[in-house]
Structures are given as structure tokens and as C-alpha cells.
């Protein structure tokens, strides 16, 4: 067992973990932050994307012990301080960018990382960036549209209700 300590959504947490425990499992099972989802076992689906020291990371690609001392943000830490949806979350709701909601936390975390890097991404840049996030429900149309809207772009010409 290894002792780990990290900051998750602004709070310091610590505990003992087996060396083989992934960050995704630590967040879900030990911290009960179940918004980080596990949709595959090969680090392809992106449902578990979180931010580690400001960078988007698939939480299944690192051990919990590797996050020692890190600043981790999960979907539970993304809303505005007053609890309201942040700009990206609100855009997903406004533009119906989610259906079953399972890939959604990873999509929002990836979108936030993208907009941090690139404030006004083109459609092609968004689609390219989301290569590591799989959604089976939306056909991506409204996800891409929501991210464009969240970055302040006019999406009224893009088809859809």
C-alpha cells in the first residue's frame, strides 16, 4: 500500500492505495467522485478525462500514486462557485450536446482543456481534438456545436433545432 495525497477540486485528500489502483478507480471508489466514468479498458473512450495540474488526462492512464501532490479537477469541480453551470456546461445544455450523459463528463473536461489551449477553435480543430472522446448517442453534431458556442462563436447557421 502506498500513501497518496493530492488536491481534488480544491480540497486536500489523502489515503492508502494499492500500487495497481488507477486514478480513475481512486476517484470513483475511494473518493466517491462518480462523475468520472469508465467506459473502456484500453484508454480509448475518454469518459474518464480529468485535469491533472491543468492538463487533460485520461484518469485510467495513470496510477493514483502517480498523482501524488497533484492538483486534480474532476467534473464535480467544474460548475461556477455558486453551483450554476459554467459556460461550457451551459452550452452543452443549451445545444443538446448530451443524451445519456455517460461520455459527458469526459467531453466537458476535454472541451475545457481545448478552449484553454485554443480560445476560438474551428469545427475541424474541435473534431480533431475530440479524437479521444467517444460518444455513441449524439453523433457529435451538438457537441461540436456546443463547444463552438461556448467559445463565443455564432452557431446559428449550423443546422439543428
Amino acid at each position: 500500500m502506498t500513501q497518496v495525497s493530492m488536491t481534488v477540486n480544491g480540497k486536500t485528500v489523502s489515503g492508502e492505495v494499492e500500487g495497481r489502483i488507477l486514478l480513475s478507480d481512486y476517484l470513483r471508489e475511494d473518493l466517491r467522485l462518480t462523475g468520472t466514468h469508465i467506459g473502456c479498458d484500453t484508454s480509448q473512450c475518454g469518459a474518464c478525462v480529468v485535469h491533472v495540474d491543468g492538463k487533460a488526462v485520461k484518469a485510467c492512464t495513470m496510477f493514483a500514486a502517480e498523482a501524488e501532490g497533484a492538483e486534480v479537477t474532476t467534473i464535480e469541480g467544474m460548475a461556477n462557485p455558486d453551483g450554476s453551470l459554467n459556460t461550457i456546461q451551459q452550452a452543452f445544455q443549451d445545444h443538446h450536446g448530451l443524451q445519456c450523459g455517460f461520455c459527458t463528463p469526459g467531453m466537458v473536461m476535454s472541451a475545457a482543456a481545448l478552449l484553454e489551449e485554443n480560445a476560438k477553435p474551428t469545427e475541424a480543430e474541435i473534431r480533431d481534438y475530440l479524437e479521444g472522446n467517444i460518444c455513441r448517442c449524439t453523433g457529435y453534431h451538438n457537441i461540436v456545436k456546443a463547444i463552438m458556442a461556448a467559445s463565443g462563436q455564432d452557431v446559428s447557421a449550423i443546422a439543428g433545432e
Binding site: T34, I75, E76, Q93, T104, P105
Partner: peptide, 19 residues
């Protein structure tokens, strides 16, 4: 109207079986 279920999904508060 905007979907009311979205808020819990967008904030990580959905409750799926494994949760």
C-alpha cells in the same frame, strides 16, 4: 425546452448502476 436531466449529468451527479 432545455432538458432538465442535463444538469445532473453535466455536473457529475448522474447515478448509474456502477455509481
Amino acid at each position: 425546452p432545455m432538458r432538465r436531466e442535463d444538469v445532473r449529468f453535466l455536473t457529475g451527479r448522474g447515478k448509474y448502476t456502477d455509481d
